[in-house]
Amino acid sequence: MSIFLPPSFNYNLPSAGVFFIGLAGGADSGKETLCKVLIERLQKSQVVDSSKALLLHLHDFYRELTDEDRVRVASGLYNFDHPDAFDWDLLAEVMDDAKEGKLTRIPKFDFSTKRRSYEMRSSHVESPSVVLLEGILVLYSQKIRDLLNMKLFIDVDDDVRLANRVARKVAEPNPDTTDHILTEYVRFVKPAFDDFVQPSKKWADIIIPRGAENETAIELITSHAADLLGRQQLSNSTRPSRMNSSTGLLGMSNTGSNTSSACPSPRPVSRVSAVHSEAGSRSSMPSSPVPRKDVLSDSTDSLYKPVPE
């Protein structure tokens, strides 16, 4: 069985020579694990060198905390899952630097001190060919979505994510109590997922149930990304997507011998029910700019507002 997708589902080769993949999903859904699997598969495809794949974490782009913020953190009242907790301008700047091949400094957020430092990158990763960005709100900001070539959303059951969170928190060097973990989840994590993370799924090109366990989804994503990158290396210019817009079939139409020789059609992928595309409904939806709200408000109601339509 071949994969049929709506005609509006369309990728273009990245003109800047950098392929950006964004992966969003709920907290503790296995986003980082899936990104590492994708990087490994892309490297095995031999179109991505091990030194040219870069993984960025949204949680490293928390904004600098003020003195008032730190008081809130100490009291357990600061919401790290709210969109206002992130420095979106800095993230866009780092992605623009990666696109231009001048990436030298990447922020690193220290959760023990709640302070941001910068990692100095060596020259061999200053010009990555693939950049993966993972985080709960990767698809929330239009500014960031516009920089992504492929947008993914990992869909994992709420109970599984909560179980993963408890297991991770109690295994840390300074473990939290179960009561503290559940209180934090109910007060911040779950409402933020319902109001911000889950609605951002509508912007995803591909939704991945079960995460890194979904071999069919991983095969589809890596083969498509590798094909785009391989054709870009051959042509060194922007080419039409391998999506046949007239039929919605994943694969290039054989319009000429030169095209077919440089861009072989991918083999069909079976069991496609494991991967869902929402791009057809996404095309008519308006953008959702990041709203400004008071992340420090004492009122829980003021922290959580639906994603603007």
Rank of each mutant, 00 (worst) to 15 (best):
W88H: 15
D110V: 02
D60E: 09
V18C: 08
R41L: 10
E64T: 08
P128Q: 02
H82T: 09
L23R: 09
S127H: 09
F109N: 07
R115C: 07
E119V: 06
V71N: 06
L58P: 04
W88D: 00
S122E: 08
Y78F: 15
V73H: 02
G30H: 09
T104M: 10
K108Y: 12
L65W: 04
V94H: 05
R72W: 10
A24C: 11
H57M: 08
F109Q: 09
L34K: 12
E100D: 12
S15C: 06
D96I: 01
R116E: 03
N79D: 15
Y78M: 04
I21W: 05
R121L: 15
A85I: 02
R105E: 07
F86S: 01
K102G: 00
K31C: 11
L23C: 05
H59F: 03
Q43E: 14
S45M: 03
E93T: 01
M120G: 01
V130A: 05
K52Q: 15
L54H: 04
M95H: 02
A53G: 14
D67Y: 02
S127W: 02
H82I: 01
L139H: 05
L55S: 07
A24E: 03
D96Y: 03
I106L: 11
A16S: 12
R116N: 03
S129T: 15
S15K: 14
K31G: 14
R63A: 11
D28G: 09
L139A: 12
D84F: 06
S129G: 04
R72D: 05
Q142F: 07
D110R: 07
Y118H: 11
A24F: 04
A74H: 11
A85K: 04
D28Y: 15
L133M: 03
S117I: 02
V71T: 15
D87E: 00
F20V: 06
S75D: 15
F109W: 14
V47E: 04
S50G: 12
K36S: 13
D60Y: 02
F109M: 05
S51P: 00
S112D: 11
V18W: 07
R105V: 03
V47D: 10
G22F: 04
L34H: 14
V37D: 12
G101M: 05
K52F: 06
S141T: 01
A92M: 09
E68I: 06
D81R: 02
D67C: 08
E126C: 11
E93Q: 08
F86L: 06
F109P: 07
I21Y: 03
E100K: 14
Y140A: 14
S51W: 00
L103P: 08
Q142A: 13
A27T: 14
K114R: 08
A85C: 07
R41H: 13
A85S: 14
E32A: 12
P128D: 02
F61D: 11
H57D: 05
V131K: 10
L54W: 02
H59V: 01
L38S: 06
